[in-house]
């Protein structure tokens, strides 16, 4: 052991040690590059959700319904968002529009903003103030939800905005705190079902009997769970009123 070359930091490196240290350096530097590639190139696909700024600003009119989070049943649409569509809505950032929409419940409103789109899921991010959401003239047709019975679904609760493309990836456990922050801000929670339910892969989540998503569900955001829910069809959107007592982490 005592014959080992003795390294003193401020003196030249002993000859015997030089080769060893060069090899270590080379291994570490090359290893760093290889590790960067290995980790970086094996990240999961975040999906195709995105802000559709390329569509331009969307302005449509429809009836506001509170579930309690607001939905818009489009009565006067455009090429992208035809009449008959049901839109979930969000404000800019991690905030929903419940306070702005609540006074207009059951009335016609004109909304304007940018669309977020992921497969069948879409959501409109409204502009601020009157430009984003204002009462519209005319008689509002009645909105009648259609009950579809009680279901047991497997999937994941996400915040609808990040999932729809505000963040890529916008789901999963690494994103859980962000999702909670969005949900407490009033952004509609969305359930991603393992397989389509009556044709829908994405369902909006509420609590039982017209309440908001229960607090207990926040502990399960981002996890793969099984839950029982009363499902109702609101226009072309399915809303699931989950029963928190039946919520279980899936195997």
């Amino acid at each position: 052991m005592k014959k080992a070359p003795f390294f003193v930091g401020y003196l030249p490196v002993p000859r015997d040690l030089r080769v060893f240290l060069w090899i270590i350096c080379a291994l570490l530097v090359v290893g760093a590059g290889a590790a960067g590639y290995a980790v970086g190139s094996t990240q999961d696909n975040p999906g195709d959700g995105a802000f559709r700024f390329d569509y331009g600003r969307q302005t449509v009119t429809g009836v506001i319904e509170l579930t309690p989070l607001p939905l818009l049943h489009v009565t006067e649409g455009n090429d992208r968002i035809p009449a008959g569509r049901t839109l979930m809505m969000t404000a800019g950032g991690k905030a929903g529009v419940p306070d702005r929409a609540a006074p207009l419940e059951g009335q016609l409103a004109t909304v304007s903003g940018v669309l977020l789109e992921r497969g069948d899921l879409d959501m409109l991010q409204l502009r601020g103030g009157q430009g984003g959401l204002r009462a519209a003239e005319g008689d509002a047709p009645a909105v009648t939800p259609e009950p579809l019975g009680r279901w047991k679904l497997t999937g994941e609760i996400c915040d609808g905005k990040c999932l729809a493309g505000a963040m890529r990836p916008g789901r999963g456990l690494a994103h859980k705190a962000c999702a909670n922050l969005c949900l407490t801000g009033g952004i509609p929670p969305v359930f991603v079902s393992t397989q389509p339910v009556e044709g829908a892969e994405y369902l909006m989540v509420t609590g039982p009997d017209g309440t908001a998503m229960p607090d207990a569900a926040y502990d399960r955001v981002g996890q793969f769970i099984t839950v029982e829910a009363e499902i109702t069809r609101h226009g072309d959107l399915l809303v699931m009123a989950i029963d928190p007592a039946t919520m279980e982490v899936s195997d």
Partner: peptide, 19 residues
Amino acid sequence: RQSWPGDVAPEQLTRAVGE
């Protein structure tokens, strides 16, 4: 750690009243 349980299908427990 969980894997996406993609093979589990939705299950209808009760039909809607009046259906």
